[in-house]
Simulated assay, not measured.
Amino acid sequence: MSKKSLLLSFVPLFLLFLFLPVSVHAYQTGYVDTNGSLLVRDSANTESPVVGSLVDRQTIEYLDVGNGWGQITYHGRTGYVSLDYITETGVDAVEDTDAQDTVVHEEAESPPLNGAPLGSIQRIVLDPGHGGQDPGAVVNNFYEKEITLDIANRAAAYLTDAGYNVSLTRSNDSFIALDDRADYANGTSADIFISIHANASFDLDANGIETYYAPGSAAGQTLAHALQSEAVREIDMRDRGVLPSNYVVLRKTAMPAALIEFGFMTNEYDRSLQQTDLMRDQSARAILRAVQSL
């Protein structure tokens, strides 16, 4: 066979491969759709160690590796998440904002209940975020659920010494559902509700303190501003401001409520402070002073 004939024989084969559909693995974009945190695991199975977590409505890029698991890049390492809690972006997707850095974000089902005015404050419910099987954010074996409980316990001690009646939604490393936290606060007829968290973000430069209140709750907004003001006064962290948000524990509580994020665990500077007794004590004192200022 001549070289020309050999070349011509390959042309149809080349064209066939050129126009055949080719199956390739490609990353897809989706967002977290869960009433809580979505755990990130070391490998694609439920028995694998937890290496971190994602927050509700957080936009991610993932690779479908089969059996209901997606592969992601989590803080520079490979992680795996259940695709049962990942929804493709589209008409139902939520705009990606700084608010996605926090923990549990949902659409409002009804107007917030916590529209009552601030009155004489005697009964306070502190809500240490996460707990038990829900670690919250996890960075280098540093767990959000631990720092929130520590700050809450310190704040409870300060508030009790100051004459307030204080109770906690959890007093140990136990899992409490979000609705149950709100129901507990409502059952105590508390005057105010304060939820305590630490932030996380894929943007490692994100840093600072921010506080949330339920949209439409003037008293909740006043409480949030008091917490934010005292926190940034006490702690050497960036002031990210006060924002409305439809968190479950904000919209389902019957009293003025606020959720404060004491810095970003994913930011090296913030995390270095969060790991100290000084910062945790400053956070607790900020809560006390905020309550006393109302």
Rank of each mutant, 00 (worst) to 15 (best):
residue 229 S to I: 03
residue 83 L to T: 04
residue 73 T to V: 14
residue 42 D to P: 01
residue 190 A to E: 12
residue 217 S to R: 00
residue 233 R to L: 13
residue 248 V to F: 08
residue 271 R to Y: 11
residue 26 A to P: 05
residue 66 G to P: 10
residue 132 G to E: 03
residue 161 D to I: 07
residue 287 I to E: 02
residue 121 I to F: 06
residue 200 A to H: 04
residue 88 E to N: 05
residue 146 E to R: 11
residue 94 V to Q: 06
residue 132 G to F: 02
residue 118 L to S: 08
residue 22 V to E: 13
residue 108 A to M: 04
residue 248 V to I: 13
residue 126 L to N: 01
residue 263 G to P: 06
residue 263 G to C: 01
residue 106 E to K: 13
residue 6 L to Q: 14
residue 192 I to K: 01
residue 192 I to P: 02
residue 291 V to G: 01
residue 294 L to V: 08
residue 102 T to M: 14
residue 293 S to L: 08
residue 87 T to E: 15
residue 250 L to M: 07
residue 158 Y to F: 15
residue 81 V to S: 02
residue 147 I to R: 04
residue 11 V to I: 15
residue 221 Q to A: 11
residue 141 N to A: 10
residue 178 L to G: 09
residue 291 V to F: 03
residue 193 F to Y: 15
residue 210 E to V: 10
residue 275 Q to L: 15
residue 54 L to G: 03
residue 137 A to Y: 05
residue 60 I to A: 02
residue 166 V to P: 00
residue 59 T to L: 12
residue 111 P to I: 10
residue 206 A to P: 01
residue 194 I to D: 04
residue 238 R to F: 13
residue 37 S to V: 14
residue 232 V to A: 03
residue 14 F to Q: 09
residue 84 D to W: 09
residue 40 V to C: 10
residue 293 S to H: 09
residue 178 L to D: 11
residue 103 V to R: 11
residue 273 L to Y: 02
residue 167 S to C: 05
residue 21 P to K: 01
residue 26 A to Q: 13
residue 180 D to P: 07
residue 5 S to I: 15
residue 27 Y to L: 14
residue 253 T to I: 05
residue 181 R to H: 00
residue 37 S to I: 14
residue 36 G to C: 04
residue 74 Y to V: 08
residue 50 V to H: 07
residue 32 V to D: 08
residue 107 E to Y: 12
residue 225 H to E: 15
residue 176 I to P: 07
residue 16 L to T: 13
residue 243 L to A: 09
residue 150 D to M: 02
residue 215 P to L: 00
residue 243 L to P: 00
residue 95 E to M: 11
residue 161 D to S: 12
residue 275 Q to T: 14
residue 92 D to C: 08
residue 105 H to V: 12
residue 269 Y to F: 14
residue 108 A to T: 06
residue 69 W to A: 00
residue 156 A to Y: 01
residue 269 Y to W: 10
residue 178 L to R: 00
residue 268 E to T: 14
residue 94 V to N: 05
residue 210 E to Q: 14
residue 159 L to H: 02
residue 43 S to F: 07
residue 68 G to N: 07
residue 176 I to V: 15
residue 94 V to E: 05
residue 280 R to E: 06
residue 199 N to T: 04
residue 163 G to P: 00
residue 72 I to Y: 03
residue 177 A to T: 13
residue 88 E to G: 06
residue 105 H to E: 13
residue 89 T to H: 07
residue 114 N to H: 06
residue 257 A to T: 01
residue 120 S to I: 12
residue 197 H to R: 02
residue 11 V to T: 12
residue 215 P to D: 02
residue 48 S to K: 01
residue 195 S to A: 14
residue 151 I to C: 04
residue 36 G to R: 00
residue 131 G to N: 02
residue 199 N to S: 07
residue 292 Q to K: 14
residue 253 T to K: 03
residue 286 A to N: 00
residue 29 T to K: 15
residue 93 A to Y: 11
residue 37 S to W: 06
residue 91 V to A: 13
residue 6 L to I: 10
residue 220 G to R: 03
residue 64 D to G: 05
residue 17 F to C: 14
residue 270 D to K: 12
residue 228 Q to V: 06
residue 113 L to G: 00
residue 20 L to G: 08
